[in-house]
Structures are given as C-alpha cells and as structure tokens.
Design a protein around this nucleic acid. Structure first.
Lengths: 187, 187
DNA sequence: ACCCATAAGTTGTCTCTACAACCATCCATG
DNA sequence: CATGGATGGTTGTAGAGACAACTTATGGGT
C-alpha cells in the first residue's frame, strides 16, 4: 500500500457497492463476449480489431507505433507483440519511419483491409446486440458522459483522449490539457 | 433485433459510436489499472480478489466451484486454474463436497482471509479514486441501472447460462434491479 | 437395475499480456 | 561535435485466459 497506516478506510456504502459490483462483472464479461464473437467470425481479437480499425482510418493506412498505442489504449510492448503477430498473418506491415529512424510505422495491408471489412458487420451487430440496443437513448448518452468522466480522470498522462474524442457528435469536447499535439485530429 | 428487419448494414450512428468507443476504451484501461494496483499492494489479481471476497462472505468461508464461478462471472475452467494457483500459494483449500462427489468446495484459509483484509483498504481506495468518487451520486445510480441491464441481457444470452441454473439455497434467480441484492464485496 | 444424457471439475495446449531489461536514435547543451 | 538524457521500440520470460478434450459422478427413464 502506498502510504499511511491505520487510518480509517473510506468503505463503500450499499449504493456504491451495488454500482461497483455490477461494473466489475461487466468488465469481466463484456470483453470476453465480444472477443469470442470476433474470434469465431473473423479470427481476430477485439484488440486486434481496434488496431485494424485505427489503421484503416489513418491517412495512408499507417500510424507510428506510439500513436497507434495511444489510440488503442495499449502499452507499447503489448502493441509491439500484437503487431508482430499480425504481421506474420499478413494483416499489417512494419516499415521504418523515414523521418525518425527510431520509429516504426505500422501499415494496413490489403489483406488487413479486407479482413476488417469482413469483420465489421458481425462486430457491429454484436455491439448492438450486447450494448447499444439494450439501452435507451437516454441511458446511452448517460453512459457516454460517465465513461468520458472516468477516462478523463484515468488519462492523467493524456494521449488516448484523441481516439474517442474524434468520434464526437459535434465538438462537445475541448480538453485544454491535451498534450498530444503531434497526433492527428484530422477526420 | 429491435425493429426494422434490416439485416443489411446496421451501422452505428455518431451518438452510438461515441458511447461505444468510450466504453471500449474503458474496458481496456480500467481492469489493468485496478489489476496492477492490487498486484503491487497485495500480490493478487483483480479476479483473485473477487474470489477471496466471495469466499470470505460465504457461509463457512466456502463455496462450490460452480457457485463461485457464477458469482465471479468466470468460466469453470478458468476458475479451476485460478483456484489451483491460489491453493499453491496457501490462500484457499479445495475439498470434495460430501453431498455431491462430483463437486469441489473451495474454502478460504486463514492466510487467504488475512490476505484480503490486507488488500481491501488499498483496493477500495483505488475503486474510489478511479470510479466511485469521480461520478456524481446520480451518475452512479445511472451506471448501476445501465450495468444491470447489460448484465441481465448478457447472462441470459451468453453461454454461461447453463452454469447459473443451479442455485440451491438462494433462489435469487431474478433479483432484478433491487439494489440490496446479496452480492457484496468485502467492504 | 441398467443405460445414457447431463452436470461438475480438471487438465493440456496455445495464445495473449505484463513487466523489465535492453538497444537504437534523437536532441539539447556545453 | 561529443555526450548525457530522453524518446521510440523490441524482446525475453513468466503468468493468466480461452477452448476443447477428458474423467467421474448423478439422475431420470424404461
């Protein structure tokens, strides 16, 4: 534990506990549900799907590893391993960045593009079936606000904020502490 | 699906996409955040914490594997592996169920009890810091309702439905949105 | 009493993730 | 124009999850 000793711990009350228990269960169940759907239908994991999705929308179908990591909420080591596997399956290519020889650019191949186009309908259907269509429009917008608040707080280091913020309706989002100036907000 | 027998391309509109992208990011970030906090502080994963929590509140500090699996939203194979590892670390014990010789009862050891008591304060602090205290009370109750709706749907449509069929002493097969459900984390 | 379908767990294997150590490059400064 | 610190990525390894195959036990039907 970080610090302090026998200080009174702020326990959760019933209401808070009810919320947390459900959220925790959801964190456990939802990813694996979507994961296995994608795996069966298109032989990609949910995370790989996001990698494909981000690349498919990037200019030139390519992104530097660190930008891609930020947009997919992943650590760089994890992304590196994943991209390597995806490369061996012909979904992406890695090439050195001419501008910065430390950097690597991951580029979507035609096969990768075909794969996400094949995977998308089923995935969207699953997201609808398990999430979007279950909630009322009002609940959906509540959920957006809630997730947004949580993410903003978790993102002390910033960076991945750009990923979801570009999917905003009209710009309802302006975060002053966004240091990701090197990122792309074009779209 | 809901209405409009459109089997074609049920794409998400901007609002829905905004919600889903945030939820997906949250699904990626929150578990690993809480996981690594628990690991550093008490050398248990989030999932193991839940196992300990469920057992610590069970009568006799023990539960059958399938009941434990249901309460932790896990599959039986996964739970079996986890419990085996936890047993090797002295946190739980496994003993055959005298009533049903197919069944195994996982029982919390004194060491396991000590471990969760050691882990709880830091974990609760983390849950507060990253989730509960970030949201308004109103948002928290909205979140409860939302998660509840999603879980109810996932449970009945998911593959683990079979595993929930068996509730012996506690027929809460349908505990709906009752916030005072018997599901407690140690808190 | 005997089958056979089903339930409860376990195990094996392969994939994926986390963490830390590591190498290479860039760049600001003297 | 060397050099120390930061930045961008990769890799090794060990731990954790997914899935399928398997074992043992239960229970209902005939």
């Amino acid at each position: 534990m970080p610090h302090d000793g026998a200080v009174d711990v702020p326990w959760l009350d019933r209401t808070q506990l009810a919320a947390w228990v459900r959220v925790a269960a959801l964190l456990e169940v939802l990813p694996s549900t979507l994961d296995s759907q994608l795996r069966r239908d298109a032989d990609v994991t949910l995370f790989e799907y996001f990698v494909l999705a981000m690349l498919s929308e990037a200019p030139g179908r390519g992104l530097r590893m660190s930008d891609l990591a930020a947009q997919t909420s992943a650590t760089l080591p994890r992304l590196s391993h994943v991209v390597k596997r995806m490369e061996s399956r012909g979904l992406v290519e890695r090439r050195p960045d001419p501008d910065d020889r430390r950097a690597t650019v991951a580029v979507l191949t035609d096969g990768g593009m075909a794969r996400i186009e094949q995977a998308a309908p089923g995935h969207v259907r699953a997201v609808r079936a398990h999430v979007v269509d279950i909630l009322t429009p009002e609940q959906l917008s509540q959920l957006t606000a809630i997730a947004d608040a949580l993410l903003r707080h978790l993102d002390t280091s910033g960076g991945m904020a750009a990923m979801y913020r570009r999917y905003d309706d009209d710009d309802a989002a302006d975060d002053a502490d966004d240091p990701s100036s090197g990122n792309d907000i074009r779209a």
